[in-house]
Design a binder for these strands. Structure first.
Length: 102
DNA sequence: GTGATGACGGAAT
DNA sequence: TATTCCGCCATCA
C-alpha cells in the first residue's frame, strides 16, 4: 500500500464537495495541507480524464467564478452543471453563501 | 540545470 | 471597484 500522492489527495477532496456547494482552488489546496498550491490543484484537474466522474465543476477560483474564458465550452458546461445543482450565478458570479464546502 | 508556464491568490495601485 | 503585479510551486521544454 503506498501513500496517497498529492494529486490523489486532491481528487479525494474534490470528490468530497457536496452537491450545490463550491470550493475554491485555494481552499482545496489548504485542505490538502498545501496552502500555496492553488495552481497545482488547477493543473491536477486539467489533467483529469473526461470520464473520472469527479465533480470538478464545483471547483472555482477565488473570484467566485469558473476559471475559464466565458466563451469557452468548458465554462458553459461548468456553469450548466452548477446551476443544475441549484447554484445561483449572479452576474456571472456565484453567491458567496455557496462557498465553504468543508 | 535553467527558464517558462499555469483551470490561482492576494496585495498594491 | 477594476487592473496590474508579484509570489508560490510542481511540471515541462
Amino acid at each position: 500500500m503506498r501513500e496517497l500522492t498529492l494529486h490523489e489527495l486532491i481528487w479525494q477532496l474534490v470528490a468530497a464537495i457536496p452537491p450545490g456547494r463550491v470550493a475554491t482552488y485555494g481552499q482545496i489546496a489548504r485542505q490538502a495541507g498545501y496552502p500555496r498550491h492553488a495552481r497545482y490543484v488547477g493543473q491536477t484537474l486539467k489533467n483529469l480524464p473526461a470520464d473520472t466522474g469527479l465533480p470538478w465543476h464545483r471547483v472555482i477560483n477565488a473570484r467566485g467564478e469558473p476559471s475559464f474564458p466565458k466563451q469557452s465550452p468548458a465554462y458553459r458546461l461548468q456553469r450548466e452543471r452548477l446551476e443544475a445543482e441549484g447554484v445561483v450565478f449572479l452576474n456571472g458570479r456565484i453567491s458567496l453563501e455557496r462557498f465553504g464546502a468543508f
